[in-house]
Every structure is written in structure tokens, then in C-alpha cells.
Amino acid sequence: MPALDETGDPGDDGLVQVNYRKYDGSLHWNLRMRRLGADEHGIWLGLPADSRIRKGLGPDRELAEAHVILFPRDAWWTAAFNAAPRRTELYCDITTPPQWPSPAEVTMVDLDLDVLRRRGAELPILVDEDEFAEHQLAYRYPPDVIRSAERSAAWLMTAVAERTGPFSGAHQPWLAQVS
């Protein structure tokens, strides 16, 4: 698949189809988001409050708060920054590096591990380690995928705790565009 494409039109409606998949290729979380722009951290997409998201082919679910997602360059994660009062301020999915088959679509494989920070909390937490362990066997993750996911989770735990890089408030101007 092509590398992250920062150029090009996301489409006539300005929306990008976001497809998180599982390692077997099945559709996981999926939604359409507005392309907001790019900076040194990657591509930023956003949605206003009361937007819709789907898990797999299931029914639409409403997201009460506005949020933006950062799709970094050549990194094994994505990061969703949620507007208040959502309890989870930051939710990072450990994924394969985001791929852009076209400027109007981004896709990646969700590798189960997540790093999140609750609103008002100082430190992040790592979740879904049990799911990661189960899926290593069920989906037969190769050793390099396991190592990359674990390294990414460790890096995120430190970067989020220390509020460095995109976790130092870089999301705020992007979130303001959809809040």
C-alpha cells in the first residue's frame, strides 16, 4: 500500500473513510471523518459532536462529544483526542502504520493494545493486554508485529505521561475546528 499521502483531495464531500481492521482483515471500527489538515505529527481528521461510528457491520453508534484522530507517519498507533465532558480524554490504538490507499481512505490493523488517559488523570493506562495475548494465538501475529506493538505501547506510555510530541496539546487547534 502507498505511504501516508498528505497531498490530494479527500473527495468531493471533504470526508475520509476511516477503516480499522482486525488482523484477519475483518472490518472493526469504521467511520467517515473530515480531513482537517497535517502538521509535523501527521494527518488530523475530525468529527463534531453527535456524529456516528460503526463497529464492523453493526449499527451506527452516536458519539456525543467532538473528537479528532491523529494518523502519524510511519508509527504503529493512532490517537483520538476527545472533547469534554467525555471521560476518556485520549485514546491511542496500537495499530499497524496507517495506510492511505487514496486521499479519501485510511486503513490500519488494530492490534488490540490501547493506551488511554482519563480526563484529569496524570498518568496513562495500558488496556486490553489480555485481548492482545489471545489474538497473538488466534490470528498468529508474526514476531515482528508483536515486537512493534509492544514497543509502540511502551513509547506511548512514556510520551503520554510526559506530555511530549503530539501529547503536549497539539490536538487543541484541531479539536477547536470541530467543537
Rank of each mutant, 00 (worst) to 15 (best):
D110E: 09
T88I: 15
D110H: 07
I94R: 00
L63R: 15
P98K: 06
L90Q: 02
P97N: 13
A104T: 11
N82F: 03
P98R: 02
A84H: 10
H67M: 14
T107R: 13
P101V: 01
R61H: 12
W76C: 05
V106T: 14
D74F: 04
E89M: 09
E65G: 09
C92M: 07
P103E: 03
L70T: 07
G58L: 06
P85I: 06
M108S: 14
T88Q: 11
F81Y: 11
E89C: 07
S102N: 14
E65N: 14
A83R: 02
A83Q: 12
I94W: 03
Q99D: 07
T95D: 09
P72G: 14
I94D: 03
I69W: 00
T88A: 10
L70W: 01
P59Q: 13
E65M: 12
R73L: 15
Y91M: 05
T96C: 10
Q99N: 04
A79Y: 03
I94Q: 01
T95C: 05
T88H: 03
E62P: 04
W76T: 01
S102Y: 07
A83G: 04
P98C: 10
P85H: 01
V68G: 00
E65F: 01
D93P: 04
T78H: 06
E65D: 12
R87F: 00
R73S: 10
L90Y: 06
L70K: 05
P101E: 08
G58F: 01
T78Q: 04
D60F: 02
W100I: 08
F71E: 05
P72H: 05
L63G: 02
F81V: 13
A84V: 11
D93A: 11
P97I: 05
A79S: 15
E62M: 11
Y91A: 10
M108E: 05
P101M: 02
P98W: 07
A80Q: 11
A64V: 10
R86N: 12
E89A: 13
V106E: 00
A66F: 08
T95F: 06
M108W: 01
L57A: 13
W77L: 14
N82H: 14
W76Q: 07
D93C: 13
A79T: 12
R73V: 12
E89D: 04
A79R: 05
T107V: 08
D110F: 02
T78A: 01
L70P: 07
F81H: 06
A66P: 04
T95H: 02
E89P: 09
D93W: 10
Q99P: 02
P101R: 09
W76K: 08
L111F: 02
A66V: 04
I69Q: 10
D74M: 07
E89I: 03
A79H: 03
I94C: 07
D74C: 06
A75C: 12
P72N: 09
L70I: 14
H67Y: 11
R86S: 11
D74R: 15
R73I: 13
A75G: 06
P98Q: 10
T88M: 09
P59V: 04
V106M: 05
A104Y: 03
S102W: 08
H67L: 15
E62T: 14
A80T: 14
P103M: 03
A64G: 12
E105G: 00
A64W: 08
H67E: 06
E62R: 15
P97T: 09
T88L: 12
D93F: 14
V68T: 10
W77N: 06
S102A: 15
T107F: 00
A83D: 04
